[in-house]
Structures are given as structure tokens and as C-alpha cells.
Simulated scan of single mutants.
Amino acid sequence: MLIPGFLLRHEVTVEPYLGDNGYGPQWGDPVPVRCFLEEKTRLVRAPDGREVTSSSTFYCRLDAVDAPPESKVTLPGDRPTTVIQQARHDGGGLPTPDHLEVQLL
């Protein structure tokens, strides 16, 4: 089951992090993503184990985008931020709202 469309009230732009090469960090083309944006400060754990403060989290459909850590995100109002980590919530066919949770700096 997909996250219901009526919950996707916001739009962010994601530039997926592709990795580093000889020229430095590389990002993919900007992708507009319909989502539910929660602007709430909370403590989260980064992929390297550090505790960092997240200023926002957005929730979108699983197939909307891949936003690995260090991806660039532009929030409404042209506010830039960076992905801390993403978490896939997939019920495996159970009637749950499958979605991607993306935590932002």
C-alpha cells in the first residue's frame, strides 16, 4: 500500500549524492519530490554512528527518489539542507503505508 497522495502536501528538490571522484563530490540531477515535510528538531544517529541534530524530516513514496546520505535537498522557500540518512518503511505486502523517511540536517 502506498502512502496516501493527500498526505503529500509539500514539494522538495533532491540532488542524489553519487559519490566522490577525482574532482570531489558528485550529485545527480535535481528531482522534484512530492512529500510530507515535518520541520521538527530531533536527535538522530548518522550512518557513521555520530549523534546529530535533524532539523526536518520528509516522507515520500518509496519509488519517488533515492536520497543517500550527503544528498542535497532544497526545502520550500529555497532553503538548502543535506540528507543525514534515509529509512525505507516497506510492509512487504501488508496493508501499511509504505514510504521513505529522509532525515535532514
Rank of each mutant, 00 (worst) to 15 (best):
T74M: 02
L100I: 12
D63L: 12
V33Q: 07
P30W: 05
V102P: 03
D48N: 09
R34A: 12
P25H: 11
D98R: 04
T96F: 13
G5T: 14
L104D: 05
F58A: 04
L104C: 11
V12N: 09
R9T: 15
Q86T: 13
V33I: 06
E39P: 02
S56P: 00
H99Q: 03
A67D: 07
H99Y: 05
E51K: 12
F58K: 03
D78F: 07
V102W: 02
P4E: 08
T82N: 11
H99W: 02
G77K: 09
R45L: 04
L18C: 04
Q86A: 14
D20R: 11
R79Y: 04
G91H: 11
S71H: 09
T82W: 06
V83L: 01
Y23Q: 09
P47G: 09
E101W: 10
L104Q: 14
V44W: 04
D48P: 01
G19K: 02
E11P: 06
V52S: 05
P69K: 13
P47R: 11
Y17N: 04
T96E: 14
R45D: 06
E38T: 07
N21F: 03
V14Q: 03
S56D: 12
T96L: 15
P76H: 12
D98C: 10
L75T: 04
G92P: 13
V44G: 02
Y59N: 03
V65T: 02
T41G: 05
G77Q: 15
L18W: 05
P25T: 13
P25D: 11
L8K: 02
S55H: 15
P76S: 14
D29N: 15
V33S: 04
G93D: 07
D98Y: 08
P4L: 11
V102A: 06
T53M: 04
D63Y: 08
G91S: 15
V65W: 00
V83I: 11
Y23E: 13
R42V: 05
E39W: 12
S71I: 04
D48S: 02
I3Y: 15
P68F: 00
Y17R: 07
F36D: 13
R9H: 00
D90G: 01
E39D: 09
S55I: 12
P32Y: 10
D29I: 01
T82L: 02
Y23I: 00
D29R: 15
L105F: 14
E38C: 08
A64E: 08
I3T: 13
I3N: 10
P97L: 07
N21Y: 01
P16C: 05
C60N: 12
L7C: 09
V31C: 07
D63H: 13
F36Y: 12
A46T: 10
G5I: 13
P76C: 08
P69C: 08
D63G: 02
E15T: 02
F36C: 10
D66H: 14
Y17A: 00
G93R: 10
P25F: 01
